[in-house]
Design a protein around this nucleic acid. Structure first.
Lengths: 362, 362
DNA sequence: CAACATTTGGCAACCGGTTGACAAAAGGCG
DNA sequence: CGCCTTTTGTCAACCGGTTGCCAAATGTTG
């Protein structure tokens, strides 16, 4: 029963040990390292390995009596299942991949934490990776992940719809902050927040607005722009897309000249990071926020209230999106893919100091 | 040669497909999904599977002629090695784990990116996880990781030395920002930066300094404190540890009262985040930085120059630490563990606006 | 108590690579 | 050309679980 080739698996481990004494030592060193297997448990419990396997993974397939005996033996040996051995025949790894476009973007912090939480809840491990805002890299990373995870969650992907569908033919995919036909998608309802925001600005006397967009491949940026346009049209306000750039502080700074040239009195930025960058840059140029210009961000990231003035923003349910995506994925994997809609994710206007009454002396 | 139980591995995939037609379809659906194996290559190239295995992983073990034939066949089939099948007998996964204490801390951004880069360079995948500043969680995460990675890198670990050594008996461990006996450690030389900083403050007329520490389990926080004490003693400056807290913006804010009570004219903070929080809180209370009080951070994280005034700080070689840790680990795994020291990592004073001449009217 | 239905456990094949041992083939040399 | 060394490829066992199939054990019922 005991395999006679134990030297096999420990080869790499002993390599790591500084070259020392001769062969004899090697043996004793190994003994306490070899991880227990179901064969060891089987022997200890006096049953067949397959029975152990069933006891440990197929609830109810084995009588309570043997179940108990096996569990005790497993506990005694401090048994841990070998994930590779399990994955080989089944293909299941109990691991989910999450790809974000930029780990330094606080908007993803909550998405990540929400996902992490939901995964842990159902005993799954989350594997995190970033695409650094590059579609190409995103594909590479996703394909590499596909080999080892049970499903992939793409948060704000930069990939094209077709590539995403392609990816989904290998492993289930759930997309956050993007709508892709025939792919499970989670998108918060942004109209709610935008509606409130436009109403808020109108009430403050603004009539000429502007939007600073994010990356061109960003579905969410276009979506926000559409929503803003629609609500402005409804309220008979003028609005134009004045710039677009990286969804970062730096990207926001770079939009400053375009914003000044446009002459709008209030500006929506694709996200808080850009809003912060824009605000900083304008302030350096002597423009007062909100007296001369009102600025609005999206997302309500951690730290958006640290600026002076604190940023008014349209809050996104980030944590809920991350958690929701994982739960949807896990339901799909379990087959309990309730076609029921995921909980509605709503956005909400958060008014702070960066929006104010339009100034008279303009 | 062809295995007759192909239904085996695809079970989960077909589960994901909406329940549809009966059994017959199942067959045709599978055909184009089954990933090619070395057995397929062997057949196509007319050799034994083991020869394929050798050609693909043991350079030089096979004649150039067959090597070419096999590579062509592999390319034609678009073969990708099954990592689980490989990991089962060898234990090697070509994956490294990186555990940070807090993914929202910008100090880790560069460590992560540096590590990511170095790993990609040598065809390793990086698996990222965070301990959310909890020693217990760090252990859980590390143990979970240990099962699937070739080595673990701990960045600013909260674990005790003994636990780290314990962990290292299973898988090689490299520690960043901490020194642990008998464990490979990477720590930047902080004395250089601290020396310059103390000299800088002394030149500005400060005589009474303070230090706001990080978490108690933080080895780095103690180390910085020691260094500061030593340099102050050398320059005959008074210095005291006035507070300690979470290494976050919030933790810094909370130290404000203690700092005010202490009466020092210049404060070192454990890291930039705390420095930013402290500065904000003090400014809200009407204290002028640097006129009333000088503030210094550590690390020079992204954004530390966004504050008003921009933060003076002691820069850490974060990216180099991350990359260096991965390279050390990989060298160890390859057996080429050159006992040669890793490149020296130096810190450096960055003077910006938060440090200034001590005010007279105090 | 016999006949039948249902649990429960064991056997063996299998997932897809890796590797030690060995034999066949190729190359070198006198 | 024969003998010996080296290279190259094959065989078969193995990593550690999972699962279809079957037989034994157990339970149920008339």
């Amino acid at each position: 029963m005991a395999r006679d080739d134990e030297s096999f698996k420990e080869a790499t481990l002993s390599d790591a040990i500084p070259a020392g004494d001769g062969a004899p030592t090697t043996h004793s060193q190994r003994s306490h390292k070899a991880a227990p297997t179901i064969y060891d448990i089987a022997e200890l419990a006096g049953v067949n390995p397959s029975t152990v396997s069933r006891a440990l993974s197929k609830p109810g397939r084995v009588s309570v009596k043997t179940q108990k005996r096996i569990e005790d033996a497993a506990a005694e040996l401090n048994y841990r299942v070998n994930v590779f051995a399990r994955a080989l025949p089944t293909g299941r790894t109990n691991t989910l991949g999450l790809i974000v476009s930029d780990i330094t973007n606080p908007a993803f912090f909550d998405i990540i934490r929400g996902a992490e939480e939901a995964a842990a809840e159902r005993d799954y491990t989350l594997m995190l990776a970033e695409s650094t805002e590059s579609a190409e890299r995103e594909l590479t990373v996703a394909q590499r992940m596909a080999a080892t995870v049970d499903g992939i969650i793409l948060a704000s992907p930069r990939l094209g719809d077709e590539q995403i569908r392609q990816l989904a033919t290998n492993k289930p995919v759930v997309v956050v902050n993007r709508q892709v036909d025939s792919i499970t998608s989670l998108v918060a309802d942004i109209d709610a927040g935008v509606t409130d925001a436009v109403r808020h600005l109108a009430a403050l006397g603004h009539t000429k607005l502007a939007y600073v967009g994010g990356p061109e491949q960003s579905w969410m940026s276009s979506r926000r722009w559409e929503s803003i346009q629609a609500r402005c049209a409804w309220s008979s306000l003028e609005v134009s897309l004045v710039a677009a750039g990286m969804p970062t502080v730096d990207g926001g700074s770079k939009a400053a000249t375009a914003v000044r040239a446009d002459g709008a009195t209030a500006v929506f930025c694709y996200n808080d990071l850009m809003a912060i960058g824009l605000m900083r840059e304008l302030q350096l140029a002597g423009i007062r926020v909100p007296d001369d210009l009102s600025i609005l961000g999206f997302d309500n990231i951690f730290g958006s209230d640290f600026t002076t003035p604190p940023l008014s923003t349209i809050k996104s349910p980030l944590r809920e999106s991350g958690g929701g995506a994982v739960r949807r994925m896990l339901d799909e994997l379990d087959g309990s893919a309730s076609s029921t809609m995921s909980p509605v994710l709503r956005t909400e206007l958060v008014v702070r100091g960066s929006t104010g009454r339009v100034s008279q002396e303009k």
